[in-house]
Design a binder for these strands. Structure first.
Lengths: 111, 111
DNA sequence: AACCGTTATGTAATTGTAAATATAACGAGA
DNA sequence: TCTCGTTATATTTACAATTACATAACGGTT
């Protein structure tokens, strides 16, 4: 029966969510599959939800996070931009730093 | 169009939530009103939800967080224990430290 | 031209969560 | 003993968020 401290972080723009853990997970799945449809399926998420999440990230970010293409042999696809990849890296870094910081804080508080 | 980092922290026991921002807010309202009914109303929360939140906190914490009484002239009431008050203080402290830490982290990441 | 898998978008259905409602018990005081 | 405001709990109702379904457009390939 030990107390554990948890946290979630997210980045906002104009009071609206730009990027959180769920969106980062989705972007990672897009990077792996090259397809929004497959990424959504791999996370057991509806395509519509996945699309609206990616759309929100893409329109709010300072630069596009994904490139999409429609049609062609493979039907099209979605790929991360370089900016999208750095965004993910920075987010993951912030998140891990936050976790270790909070663990230290809790340990020092003697709850 | 500036990026801002936000966070929520909470404390878990055995994988279940013990205390988060909402529960702390509720405990503070109880401290002010001396009544779970009034505390719930002051937060526009249903009594049932308020009760189940307080009950969860009370049963999972290492020591009781509130004392309740039923009946009597005033009908009864709910008051914080000393342990409940220190729990709130520590939580608020952790939370503020987390915010300033993350702000620093974001500033250093040059997003 | 026809096909196929994908993006993109609207609408209907569902379902899980929260609120509303109802009811009982309690106990000091009038 | 009756009242009153509170805690405590179950059941029903309502709503909002999510999913499911449907449809169109696209563009290489065959």
């Amino acid at each position: 029966m030990e107390y554990k401290i948890k946290s979630r972080i997210w980045i906002e723009v104009d009071g609206e969510i730009l990027l959180g853990e769920g969106r980062v997970q989705l972007l990672k799945a897009i990077a792996e599959t090259g397809s929004l449809t497959k990424a959504a399926a791999s996370l057991s998420m509806s395509y519509k939800k996945a699309w609206s999440l990616v759309d929100a990230v893409n329109t709010r970010a300072k630069k596009p996070v994904v490139n999409t293409s429609i049609g062609g042999t493979k039907g099209g696809g979605t790929e991360l931009t370089e900016y999208g990849r750095t965004l993910i890296k920075i987010f993951d870094n912030l998140n891990e730093n936050c976790w270790t910081f909070l663990d230290e804080q809790l340990a020092n508080s003697e709850l």
